[in-house]
């Protein structure tokens, strides 16, 4: 039972604090910082379902976030849907897209899959940049009146913040739920040895397609919320390859395959990045530092921070999942 897992309650407390503290202090700049942390945790956690659980590196994970943003914004502004409904619909549409796509590209193993995901990202990006209903390369804007319907800009921004925090909590709970389920066990078997998994009875084709699709859902919802909050979207910010890659760095840093590691890596990396970006000397070297971090982790600590903790305190494996 998920309710008996300490991590489950930890997630709820963490999310509640994140929602409450900036609201209580009415601190808008803290809110804007934290929403980026939440986004990082969402991206890293869902990426973890593919990389950490299933052993498939997805370089183009951000495609789900961007597409979610487009579908959500289109429904919320052009079709005047309620924001929450639009975001959920975006999640659903993008998940279905991932399912169909996954049936094709998940026939590829290992590195070949990873390469295909880069191709998918760039192909989708150039498609959207040519797609008239979504404003081609100039993108789409949220009309100011849309915020009025949510009770004014201030209210709308706080509301999207709480929603994003909710999506973050759901991302972590989803990771935990899958990790302790039979479905998760099947995924781990695929990660360890896909051929052996098939012979043990795991329907790898279906499992991989489902997890690929599931890993698309919450990032797409988050995309709809984030771009709504930002008020605009265009192909270069929606499908930013760099952000996709940073997701991988976050995950490797925290510890792939663990619920807490993905979140920890996401949070820490985002903090580090905002520090680097605001530091006048280091702002140009954000990529260099991210690259160096990734290299060090891959070469010397493939288990990331949590893996390192597990080695120090083996019993931690039972509590921190």
């Amino acid at each position: 039972m998920i309710l008996r897992r300490p991590v489950f309650w930890l997630i709820l407390v963490f999310a509640a604090l994140m929602a409450f503290i900036p609201f209580h202090a009415n601190d808008v700049s803290m809110r804007e910082d934290l929403i980026l942390v939440a986004l990082a945790v969402i991206l890293a956690s869902n990426l973890n379902l593919m990389i950490g659980y299933t052993g498939y590196v997805n370089f183009g994970h951000i495609v789900f976030y961007g597409l979610g943003g487009y579908v959500g914004l289109y429904l919320a502004t052009v079709r005047n849907w309620n924001l929450v409904l639009a975001a959920l619909a975006a999640g659903l549409v993008v998940s279905l897209f991932a399912l169909a796509l996954g049936m094709g590209i998940l026939r590829l193993r290992g590195a070949y899959f990873a390469l295909a995901t880069i191709g998918v990202l760039l192909a989708v990006q150039s498609f959207v940049a040519n797609f008239d209903p979504w404003g081609r390369s100039t993108g789409m804007y949220v009309d100011f009146s849309a915020y009025q319907r949510l009770g004014g800009a201030r209210h709308a921004l706080w509301m999207t913040y709480f929603l994003v925090i909710g999506v973050m909590a759901l991302s972590m709970i989803l990771s935990l739920g899958i990790k302790i389920s039979k479905f998760g066990l099947g995924l781990f078997a695929i990660r360890e040895d896909e051929d052996a998994a098939v012979v043990l009875g795991v329907n790898t084709t279906v499992f991989k397609a489902i997890i690929y699709s599931v890993s698309a859902f919450l990032p797409a919802v988050a995309g709809a919320l984030m771009f709504y909050k930002n008020g605009m979207i265009d192909p270069s910010i929606a499908f930013e390859f760099m952000l996709s890659l940073e997701g991988i760095v976050m995950l490797m840093l925290g510890g792939k395959g663990t619920v807490v590691g993905a979140a920890l890596g996401g949070g820490l990396y985002e903090k580090l990045r905002s520090y680097l970006l605001t530091s006048p000397k280091l702002s140009n070297f954000q990529l260099v530092i991210a690259g160096a971090l990734l290299l060090l982790v891959v070469l010397f600590a493939p288990g990331g921070l949590i893996g390192w903790l597990y080695r120090l305190v083996p019993r931690a494996r039972k509590v921190i999942e």
Partner: peptide
């Protein structure tokens, strides 16, 4: 072995 039993 649990994998074997789960998906057997």
């Amino acid at each position: 072995v649990t994998v074997g039993a789960c998906f057997g």
